[in-house]
Design a protein around this nucleic acid. Structure first.
Lengths: 350, 350
DNA sequence: ATGGTTTGGGAAATCGTTTTCTCACCTGTG
DNA sequence: CACAGGTGAGAAAACGATTTCCCAAACCAT
């Protein structure tokens, strides 16, 4: 044993591997990367030494040379984690096997200074790329991204047509929901949704209209816009099912802009003695399971496939990092329908 | 033109700053770090050059030399983000001004291989420390941490007495809730909570008992353990307020193990025509606002101060990284009461 | 003037890898 | 035997910063 070899706190370097295998550092490096020319015997000896010593290359040293850090930054202002965490999970899934890690940078809307500090830290650390994500798809973060040179991808966050953005296909999701209601035999499908200042509200309304027209029907009533809350769903039920409204003028199904609205609406119906799904079917949006499962009966809803969204964003990020050309523009990923019981269990399942 | 292929302009290095200021690299470095000796004039010239060129030191180069990466890893299996996101936010707050960034490593319980890959990536990247966080405070992540040499802090995740862990003071939180109920004039405080396989359930029960005894009362009934769901809260109401139970045998207040249970219970009471807070007061636990605000009436509940928990963990992490001695052991941070209306608004506010 | 001390600033080593040269040696061919 | 071409492996130069020397010049006191 050599002096100093007992120092277990220090990391094992390639130098020690080389010495252990009786070769030079350069040869060791080539063997470990499968690069240079050498006898099979030498290569095996080096590999064996490396695994015996549990050698792991220092990412900083490698990064310094390759001008790559094998890290990406994820900026988000979504403190609830409703959107960000599934997305981050998908991103991480796509990247971790390539040895790329994700920096989480929580950005508070009211603290642009800290946000800027975060961005600068990302620059200093030479992140290979940046992901910008948000709580709502039609707003930007309080950050100046124009001066950055690294590739940037937006996920559920506003971006221009020459940038790269991944979004949920809100229109298709809404169509899916409404088509499911028609397919279940409903004929009067109302729509209760969030504030009309949100782009997604307009898109979901559009999807609802398209699907209604596809069934040769005018959309039932006007869409009711309000807030993303249970309270609004509850209040909307009052409007749709007030005592004065004749039963033929009432919807027999409601497509809700999110699961919270659906929940509030379902509660109000229960209080009125209107049965779900017998009298009225409900479809929500989000598949936020903690809500969808708590509705009585459990809520059929639209899942936005956020994990998949993150995964695809991660894959595109890899291509960008490796310098392969990626066409700019927006990508819209399809939603899927999650059937529970608020539309009648199995009613339309062959 | 493809997105991302933008001018990957080379970074400004200290060499260019030095050249610009007409000094050597070493002098430039010293000026920028306030270290060496030189005329005030020289120092200012260098600083001016640096800011003109917008020089930012390369964190990888610095890290390589200092054997520090100015990053920490955050491992978590909390896919909902209920706990992790506030904690991460607090950690980031404490660290960002020190130039330390946070790697987010989502760990799926059913995918220990990916978890291990994540940990190895943290090692390769020489993170200065690791934070291990979880969905529940009495379980470990499917990761082998024993072989790691960097400092580790646990936040809301099981750890031994010789490790460093930050936890919520569940007992104090429960006491706070129950004391508030007594202070509001209630006398029969029941407790409905989650599965008794959770340590926090036992702790919250203990707090409930302590506070009851402090008011010279035996705890009212046995604690009802079940699930962390609204459905269980709903069902528990049936048990506590069944038709056969004489009104003197019914609780006039319920302390619930979390906000979801509280919500289910409140719903069930509403259906039975029992008024909150007039007939029965309710206190929840978690202050998960999306639930607490949706309860009718809005829920008085216990906030676990998770952001603060993260911030303190972050500060301790810094001390650990800088080599200052930190006593091992568990820290328990106090909860605070958030008053809404489910105990009677302002009833006990001076 | 001389010797010692401070002062300003630069040269060079270092961190751990990768990569490009370079070079000695071997093999086969004329 | 000479020479081209291939083969295996090492030396050294990067990458960008920090830090430890080290050395002139300037300054001071005798």
């Amino acid at each position: 044993m050599f002096a100093g070899s007992a120092n277990r706190s220090a990391r094992v370097t390639i130098r020690e591997v080389a010495h252990h295998a009786g070769v030079s550092v350069s040869t060791a490096s080539k063997a470990l990367n499968g690069n240079g020319r050498m006898t099979e015997d030498t290569r095996e000896r080096i590999l064996k030494a490396a695994s015996e010593l549990q050698f792991r290359p220092n990412a900083m040293a490698r990064g310094l040379l390759k001008q790559r850090s094998f890290t990406v930054g994820l900026l988000t202002n979504d403190t609830y984690g409703r959107f960000t965490l599934p997305v981050a999970s998908g991103i991480s899934e796509a990247l971790v096997d390539e040895g790329v890690s994700v920096f989480l940078c929580p950005v508070l809307d009211n603290d642009p200074r800290r946000a800027q500090v975060n961005v600068e830290a990302m620059q200093d650390k030479c992140v290979d790329a940046l992901i910008v994500s948000g709580r709502r798809a039609d707003a930007r973060l309080p950050i100046d991204l124009a001066s950055l040179t690294m590739p940037i991808i937006h996920v559920y966050s506003e971006c221009g047509p020459n940038e790269i953005g991944f979004f949920v296909d809100e229109v298709q999701g809404a169509r899916l929901a409404v088509e499911h209601l028609y397919a279940s035999g409903r004929t009067r499908v109302a729509h209760v949704t969030g504030p009309d200042s949100f782009d997604v509200v307009a898109k979901r309304i559009a999807g609802w209209r398209e699907a209604s027209r596809a069934h040769d029907r005018d959309p039932f009533l006007q869409p009711l816009t309000g807030a993303w809350t249970e309270a609004w769903g509850f209040a909307a039920a009052e409007r749709l099912f007030a005592n004065g409204v004749p039963s033929a003028g009432r919807p027999d199904a409601v497509f809700c802009g999110n699961d919270q609205i659906a929940r509030g609406l379902a509660d109000a119906l229960a209080l009125r003695g209107i049965k779900v799904p017998e009298d009225v079917a409900i479809v929500g949006f989000d598949n936020w399971e903690i809500f969808a499962d708590a509705v009585r009966p459990p809520l059929t809803t639209i899942d936005m496939n956020l994990v998949e969204l993150g995964r695809q964003a991660g894959q595109t990020l890899l291509e960008l990092i490796e310098g392969r050309p990626v066409a700019p523009g927006h990508r819209y990923l399809p939603c899927r329908l999650i059937q529970r019981r608020s539309c009648g269990a199995g009613r339309d399942m062959s």
